[in-house]
Design a protein around this nucleic acid. Structure first.
Lengths: 154, 154
DNA sequence: GTCAATGGTTGAGGTAGTCAACTATCTACT
DNA sequence: AGTAGATAGTTGACTACCTCAACCATTGAC
């Protein structure tokens, strides 16, 4: 068993992924900033794109405390991008939904993210295909239930 | 030109990368938390691994304001992981260096990050090799000058 | 020797995040 | 029905991160 070699490759691999992650994070933050949003706010909007969600569920998806979602929501609601609605059947839960404006912004932001991505440049079609296949296997592997959804290109 | 198809693939690809990034971010944050560090603090330690650096340069590498580095440094210095040193030749600049303890923590953290990575699992050797090749091409492409370095496995 | 540029710090202010305590509601059980 | 306990969200206190503007100290050039 070439354990030495394996270790070195893993090392390099993790490093490459860390590099790419950092790069994407930066890219994401910059794009999102053009819309006067923070990364977290954008993340929340994106979770809302497929449809309204109870706040508690959002806390789960963002992997953060419920109280954090409260604050996040306050700010987004103040800007009219999101609204709290009553949930039918349980008066405790508040369901978060995109407003029209919120939907518009969400869609525009996603569009913007798509146009110039560091990943798309630098690889030809064939390689993109291969990369996609590999990434999907990595990402799907032990992923949280239902956390990666299409952006509701409605 | 199959523009429609290309668009869809790019769409999926960006999504996959975003997913992986999110996943790595989470993973990174959790590991780093085991050492009572934040992601940013870990990032700074890592930049210091190859050797001492002037604070201004660090601000550049972390892509943040200089004043932010001051605060970051204050906290890390209070914990004895890092120290400010005078720079020979220019009494304005302060050079940041890992203490012995800081070096120990940095190394241990990196070791920890290596051991279980979401990327390593889920792919066999051959695929890891392919993925590495692709990622390196993506990351190297128009990367910031000198931002991705080996972790000084000294 | 003065003056502008540079490196770092300070202070104000905003977002993100946690935790503990609290309110309102729901559910289950008697 | 009535109470006890779980659950959803909010509030308040606190920390970290981050930016901007104002501010020293030093440097370098003229």
């Amino acid at each position: 068993m070439p354990a030495q070699e394996d270790l070195a490759r893993t090392h390099e691999l993790v490093q490459a992924v860390l590099g790419l992650s950092e790069r994407m994070r930066r890219h994401y933050a910059e794009r999102v900033d053009e819309f006067d949003l923070t990364s977290t706010q954008a993340h929340l909007l994106r979770e809302l794109a497929p449809g309204p969600r109870p706040m508690g569920e959002l806390a789960g998806r963002l992997a953060c405390d419920a109280s954090n979602v409260t604050g996040l929501t306050d700010r987004l609601e103040a800007r009219g991008l999101v609204e709290r609605r009553a949930a039918p059947g349980d008066r405790r839960v508040k369901v978060l939904a995109l407003t029209h404006e919120g939907e518009r912004v969400q869609r525009a932001l996603w569009e913007r993210l798509m146009t110039d991505s560091p990943v798309a440049a630098g690889l030809d079609r064939r390689d993109q295909q291969v990369l996609l296949g590999l990434l999907q296997r990595v990402v799907v592997e032990e992923a949280r239930p239902d956390c990666s959804r299409p952006p509701a290109s409605a």
